[in-house]
Nucleic acid binder design. Structure first.
Lengths: 165, 165
DNA sequence: TCTATTGCGGATAAAAAATATCTGTAATAT
DNA sequence: ATATTACAGATATTTTTTATCCGCAATAGA
């Protein structure tokens, strides 16, 4: 029931990209360095986000990643599902249909398993909650609540990096 | 983000035990056979549930497991947390405090990371939803919705097993 | 056109976690 | 006493996660 730490990285990257000046991009290497995570592995995650239409890729020198959509269109759920895959976290093995007391015909089991239903319902409220949180909301909160010194330092580092090109 | 299949087994076992005649118990072996799952491994899960006060153990011949509490007191969340552990599924590595733009003093990060907060909020609604579902609710639904033939067959198998002792 | 930079896809490797089993011990009903 | 059952710990197997590497494609700038 653990969510991969890659998800944490991916959200931080998307969150950062959502605050970049319009049109600018950032390389996988810089994103990795900024967050202090391994570059080749983070690159994989960014490629996945790119394949799923969350990030847009810019190839060649001066290339990198930028958001493919407006921050108000991208939710935490989108990012989580992109990285983790959109399969349910609870898999029903239909064990009610196994063992000595199971009925022969599988047509006897028209209704979904009550246990699986309950688990899936809970997962749905989880997903709905995550889908409510868009990158734009996160960005607003960051600008309102995060220490201005921190924001300045981050912005300076990013600006310096893009100047070196 | 996968929930162990052991959780599915555990819930099915608890659900079954909640429908047993008062005072009776069922062995790990029979529970495993009934559900068509490996006995030694299921036994581990049952021991965990027992350690966490969800099941009660009866040692010796005619022993086995029974619910330790009234079915209205045990929720799906209790079972999930017992098997999976009660750690959050999202772990915040505080990567905002890593990398070149981090501030020196960790006292600068008094407020929780906004991304982690959002993830934890979603997990909370998930847990709340699971905690609403008690074994007693499940039992009511089973009795109302499951094919009576199925219920009969299961009850007969269990009765026959306990007679053989 | 050439070169350096960057992302992409596939293969591979290492580490960690999940899954599964076994063995000897303790408890207890008969 | 004996047979049955749960329990704790050790161990083995399999799968998943985490991480890296390499050759190819795309492209900006000289």
């Amino acid at each position: 029931m653990k969510i991969s730490s890659t998800v944490e990285w991916a959200i931080h990257c998307c969150s950062l990209l959502s605050g970049l000046p319009a049109g600018s991009s950032m390389t996988a290497k810089d994103l990795a360095e900024f967050h202090g995570v391994p570059h080749p592995y983070l690159a994989k995650a960014l490629q996945t986000l790119s394949n799923d239409g969350i990030l847009r890729t810019v190839s060649g020198p001066k290339g990198g990643y930028k958001l493919a959509q407006h921050p108000s269109k991208v939710s935490l759920l989108d990012i989580v599902l992109s990285i983790e895959g959109d399969e349910s976290c609870f898999e029903c093995d239909e064990i009610r249909q196994k063992g000595p007391s199971a009925l022969e015909r599988s047509s006897s089991y028209k209704r979904p398993c009550l246990i699986a239903s309950a688990m899936w319902k809970a997962e749905k409220v989880w997903r709905d909650e995550l889908d409510k949180v868009k990158l734009s909301h996160l960005l607003e909160k960051v600008e309102a609540e995060v220490d201005p010194k921190q924001l300045k330092k981050a912005a300076d580092w990013i600006a310096q990096k893009s100047q070196k090109k």
